[in-house]
Design a protein around this nucleic acid. Structure first.
Ligand SMILES: [Zn+2]
Ligand SMILES: [Zn+2]
Ligand SMILES: [Zn+2]
Ligand SMILES: [Zn+2]
Lengths: 143, 143
DNA sequence: CCACACCCTGAAGCTACTATAGAGTCAATG
DNA sequence: CATTGACTCTATAGTAGCTTCAGGGTGTGG
């Protein structure tokens, strides 16, 4: 199959497929006489795997690790489980951050119940009066 | 004050300050004879405002809008409240997404309770068997 | 033979910074 | 007065995960 069909079955764009090849996530395809990429079932499987991981917001690094672990079928799956657990922790951490953020936002929001002049807007005043704090380093790849 | 001091009081780096100037979030400073940027209290206030907004994960677009609205002190603050509400919605939406994601991840995680051979790892099989779905457009700027 | 759908490469754009390199400024010290 | 060291300047490239574009080539139906 050609790249368009592969992209279609994996629900992504041809540009994404080419990008994954360049990044080394997807092995390079063989080429036809006209220099078109030619894919088989193994590519479909791998690309679908990658897209599924991406749908779970895993990073390319995490996916790369999973793929290379999966390519050693004899080994134990402990490392796989570990990567997975770490990623769950990433999601968890980001949820915590966002919940905190939402609380902060909601409390600010209460400061302006009815529309008024900009000068008097409690939200604006609240934003100006906030304690400016140093950016804390992000431990996860989830923005 | 010079850029280093400004960065210090606003808890960010000098590179970030210069970046904000280039992006038009922070107005250009006057320069000393030696071409150093020279800042006053208005810059401090504005930069702190920007950093506080960023601490709430607002996008530069949102901040730009807030700043330009704040620069019309006579007008009503309805538009400000609206931007704010939209951003709260962004956070909310992302939280929902991540909570769903976590549920999916947890259910996958259950498929491999004890370490075993990679071939048999339920997580790997689960990832391969997932319904590959088209990427849904993100309505928020929160990754 | 031509239109049209598909494919190719390489480079730039997106967000919000961060990190260099290489050079200039300035206050304090010897 | 010369030098050191902390600070500043510009310009450029890198980060993640793509998307978009420009400028071509390939292949099929009429
Ligand atoms: Zn992760
Ligand atoms: Zn208001
Ligand atoms: Zn927002
Ligand atoms: Zn396992």
């Amino acid at each position: 199959m050609k790249i368009g069909e592969l992209a279609h079955v994996a629900q992504c764009t041809v540009e994404t497929v080419r990008y994954y090849e360049k990044e080394g996530l997807l092995p390079a395809a063989t080429r036809t006489a006209g220099n078109f990429r030619q894919y088989g079932p193994a590519h479909v499987e791998r690309l679908r795997f990658i897209r599924n991981c991406r749908a779970l917001d895993m990073s390319h690094g995490e996916i790369r690790t999973l793929l290379s672990l999966a390519d050693q079928p004899g080994a134990g799956c402990g490392a796989i489980n570990a990567v997975f657990d770490q990623h769950i922790a990433h999601v968890d951490e980001r949820i915590q951050e966002l919940v905190q953020l939402k609380a902060q936002l909601s409390s600010l929001r209460k400061r302006c119940q009815a529309e008024q002049a900009v000068d008097a807007c409690g939200i604006l005043h609240g934003l100006a009066a906030m304690e400016t704090e140093a950016k804390h380093k992000r431990h996860t790849h989830l923005g």
